[in-house]
Design a protein around this nucleic acid. Structure first.
Lengths: 218, 218
DNA sequence: CGATAAAACGTACGATGTACGAATAATAGT
DNA sequence: ACTATTATTCGTACATCGTACGTTTTATCG
């Protein structure tokens, strides 16, 4: 059972693509070597010629997502640059919700490395000191990762908010003990025009660090 | 094989405690029903009389951690109140690093509910409108969760930073492609006096929202 | 054309979650 | 005091998982 002529051969790229697609649809829990092999119409053990083990595959999956994160040129203002990187990273995590759970737990590869470097570069070239850049870097990445985690745990279209909220209120006993929570739910139901919390808070963080570093535009 | 007189009986609390302790030491990956049973010197199936299934146990574990989060009385200023809740939550997540990975992915129980309610209560009683409270709530919880995730993925004492950093620099090829990253590493190695990024950024976020909501102390 | 190496896979082992039903100790009812 | 009931505990068994090991077949090269 070697490479057969009719079928196209197994490659890292093909395996990776199928693994990512499957995780997108069914989550990391459901992702198994055997299932990937099934999708590829191959034997489970065939994958081990292209990846050392499952952990190796997961590392590659993180890198696959990290590769999609754009980094701006050196001409843009640092604020716009950070927003571009962060929004790109946020978008990638929304598209691949499973990635947040393993983003910080794995060996870092070149693409994730490049993402970190680009964040630091934009900050430093924008005038941040080494120390200030480190502080801002931590805050920004925490924000990106936290937002990704929450989105992964609450994967609803804004359209479904209303039905989900009413369903929750009916099922939860002792609603009278959480008046503020209930009020928030009703507020969200009524105001369907969703503000972009990710971007809004990011900008607030950036303003804070700009002020601290003496880089305010005014 | 019923309840035997000599041994103390299995209870939800006992199982939960062992499960949490084991996850603290070895991580969620290594936590299995069979391993918990081993620790308790019980049969694996015995646990199923106290928890419906593993998911149910995981839910209970999240609740166990959520229960430890303090919430302030109504007398404190909202800013101190939020800081108390957030710091308490952050501390709980540092103590139980595994919890971040499942914090937002599970059915919410009464204790996590209480934690959310207390955040909203402090904000609203501090003068935030429903809409502003929602925005601030999202930012604060994202920050807590993101910080927990990063801490879980990088569980080092500040003392070990230096050796870890030098080890990384030696092992990573193409160090010349990540000059800013290298500079940050060196900076961290030299300045062992670690600032509390969690608290610093939290305060920055709070100041931002206070300003937006017209609640600045000045 | 023969040798070599690469790619795919068959089989098998230990571990996992848990469905099902049997077994026994504690408790309640008379 | 004796019986019936219930609450706990566990033994067995099955499907599924990751993957170690060795075999087989094809493509490639001398």
């Amino acid at each position: 059972m070697p490479r057969v002529k009719g079928k196209e051969p197994l490659t890292q790229a093909r395996i990776l693509k199928v693994a990512v697609q499957y995780a997108d649809k069914h989550g990391l829990e459901q992702l198994s070597i055997r299932e990937i092999a099934r999708q590829l119409k191959a034997g489970p053990m065939s994958l081990y010629h292209h990846f050392e083990n499952k952990d190796d595959l997961l590392d590659a999956m993180v890198e696959f997502v990290a590769q999609k994160i754009r980094s701006p040129g050196s001409d843009a203002h640092w604020r716009e640059g950070i927003i571009e990187i962060a929004s790109s990273a946020h978008g990638a995590m929304l598209k691949h919700p499973w990635v947040c759970a393993i983003w910080s737990q794995r060996q870092l590869g070149p693409h994730k490395m490049a993402y970190m470097e680009s964040l630091l570069r934009v900050l430093r070239e924008g005038g941040f000191s080494v120390s200030d850049a480190y502080d801002a870097y931590c805050a920004i990445t925490v924000h990106i990762e936290g937002a990704g985690m929450q989105a992964a745990g609450f994967p609803l279209d804004p359209k479904e908010y209303k039905s989900a909220a009413t369903g929750f209120l009916e099922s939860f006993e002792q609603v009278d003990q959480i008046p503020y929570f209930v009020q928030q739910l009703k507020h969200i139901m009524e105001n369907s025009t969703e503000t972009d919390h990710f971007l809004m808070t990011l900008e607030m963080i950036l303003d804070g660090f700009a002020s601290r570093a003496g880089l305010l535009p005014s």
